[in-house]
Amino acid sequence: MKKRVLITGAAGFLGSHLSDRFIKEGFHVIGMDNLITGSLDNIEHLMPLENFEFHHHDVSSFVHIAGDLDYILHFASPASPIDYLKIPIQTLKVGSLGTHNLLGLARAKNARMLIASTSEVYGDPLVHPQVEEYYGNVNPVGPRGVYDEAKRFQEAITMAYHTYHNLETRIVRIFNTYGPRMRLNDGRVLPAFIGQALRGEDLTIFGDGSQTRSFCYVDDQVEGIFQLLMSDYAYPINIGNPDEITISQFAEEIIKLTGTQQKVIYMDLPKDDPMQRQPDITKANEVLGWSPKVDRSKGLKITYDYFKSLPKDRLNKTEHKNFSSFIK
């Protein structure tokens, strides 16, 4: 019998790549997504496969899966500022009610569960680079609080199930990840820059550009997540690329990559936007033997070629959806 894995958020960027990986590894993949921010385009190639099935469902409501289940990967959550600022209640619910529902399912099925946490649990960090033992500097009532605190609660309830119910759990703290299937214009810096470059627009930097980010290619991220799931380590682990770069430097890399001549324009920095992002991956290296392999120049070329291949209507289309029917 093939091992069965439930992947929530399967139609999203990371969820779809994880679905690919588990299909490749010989698993039966059950993808679940309510499609608020995910797209069926990302998993269309999996639909005909015997080892893939898709459930259109919101995990904030009770989750039922018939039959055995070996693993659950919880990746259902808005992940970009445009999304979670538009649907703050849904963001909080998927991190709290959704996680609770899936932990209950994992307990009922005796399945191992991995949750997708984020570097945002560190907030605007006062420790650099960020180590897993750092508790963070988060504003719970600021505009980013709905996402940051949803993820912090998600970690807490997951560890509670591990401690009090002896449930096998894993927690991955994901740093900035990029690659094909990202959404243009979703508020994250890399697709925003590439989208602007392809449309011939000026590149927009929020703040003075001195803030830093560290970008991990999606294949490296998926490999780290897979290794963590298969490990026996229950505490949070950073998975990201420690190669730190300022936003201004990154804008220059994008301009050079695309061969365009845009200007860079500066706008006010959003409230609570972190000034530094760099993972300390010592633990990932020691516990999992993991470190990123894909150089940023190579990963950016692959990502740029993907975006360049999209139809022109996708390049010009904004990602501002009407979420009113989902907000409760």
Rank of each mutant, 00 (worst) to 15 (best):
N110L: 02
K109D: 04
S96R: 05
G95T: 09
S96I: 13
T118S: 12
A116N: 10
H100V: 06
V94M: 08
S96P: 02
R112Q: 10
N101R: 02
H100I: 07
L97N: 11
D83F: 13
M113H: 04
A106I: 03
S119L: 09
L114K: 06
L85Y: 15
K86T: 15
K86H: 15
R107V: 06
S117N: 14
Q90E: 05
S96A: 09
T99H: 06
L85W: 15
L85M: 11
A116M: 11
A108W: 04
A106K: 01
T99E: 11
L105Q: 08
K93Y: 04
L103K: 09
I87V: 15
P81G: 09
K93N: 14
V94H: 01
L105C: 05
D83N: 15
T91K: 08
A79C: 10
K93W: 01
A111S: 05
D83E: 15
N101G: 04
R107Q: 15
N101M: 03
A79H: 12
L92Y: 11
A108R: 14
G104A: 04
S117I: 15
V94I: 11
H100Q: 05
A111V: 00
G98P: 08
I115Y: 00
G95W: 01
S96E: 09
I82Q: 13
K93R: 13
D83V: 10
T91F: 05
L97H: 10
P81Y: 08
K86G: 09
Q90Y: 14
L102I: 03
T99S: 13
I87R: 15
I87P: 08
P81A: 04
K86E: 15
